[in-house]
Simulated assay, not measured.
Amino acid sequence: MKPETWAPHVTVAAIVERDGRFLMVEENTSAGLRLNQPAGHLDAGETLLEAAVRETLEETAHPFTPEALVGMYMTHFERPGSEGTTYLRFTYCGRAAEAEPHRALDPDIVRTVWMSAEELRACPERHRTPLVMQCIDDYLAGRRFPLDFVHTHSVGPKGAAQRQ
Score class of each variant (00 low, 15 high):
S82W: 01
Y87Q: 08
R34D: 05
Y92Q: 04
T65I: 09
T11W: 10
E26T: 11
E17S: 07
D43K: 14
E98G: 15
V25P: 02
R18L: 11
P66V: 05
G71N: 00
D106Y: 14
H102D: 13
L23K: 00
L69D: 03
G94W: 02
I109R: 04
H76R: 12
G84N: 01
R95H: 12
T91L: 03
I109S: 00
L23W: 06
E50Q: 11
L69C: 02
A61M: 02
T29H: 05
E27Y: 07
R103V: 11
A13Q: 05
T29E: 03
L48P: 00
E100H: 13
T60N: 00
Q37C: 13
E59R: 07
E67M: 09
N36W: 08
A52V: 02
V16Q: 05
M72H: 10
A31M: 13
E78G: 08
G84Q: 04
T85N: 14
A31D: 12
E17D: 10
E46K: 09
P63A: 05
E26M: 10
D106P: 12
E78I: 09
F22R: 04
G71T: 01
R89E: 11
C93S: 06
L105I: 07
E17G: 08
R54D: 05
P80M: 06
A44M: 14
M24V: 09
G71H: 02
L35E: 00
G40V: 02
P63F: 06
L49Y: 03
E50C: 04
L33I: 10
I109K: 00
H76N: 09
L42C: 08
H41M: 13
T29A: 06
V12W: 01
H76C: 06
L57K: 07
A13L: 08
E98P: 10
E27P: 03
E58H: 06
A99D: 02
A52N: 03
T11Q: 12
D106L: 15
E83L: 15
T11D: 14
M72G: 10
L33P: 03
P80R: 07
I109T: 00
Y87S: 07
G94C: 02
L23M: 01
P66Q: 02
A44H: 15
L33V: 10
E26W: 14
T85L: 15
P107C: 13
A99W: 06
T75Q: 13
F77D: 15
R54W: 04
E98V: 10
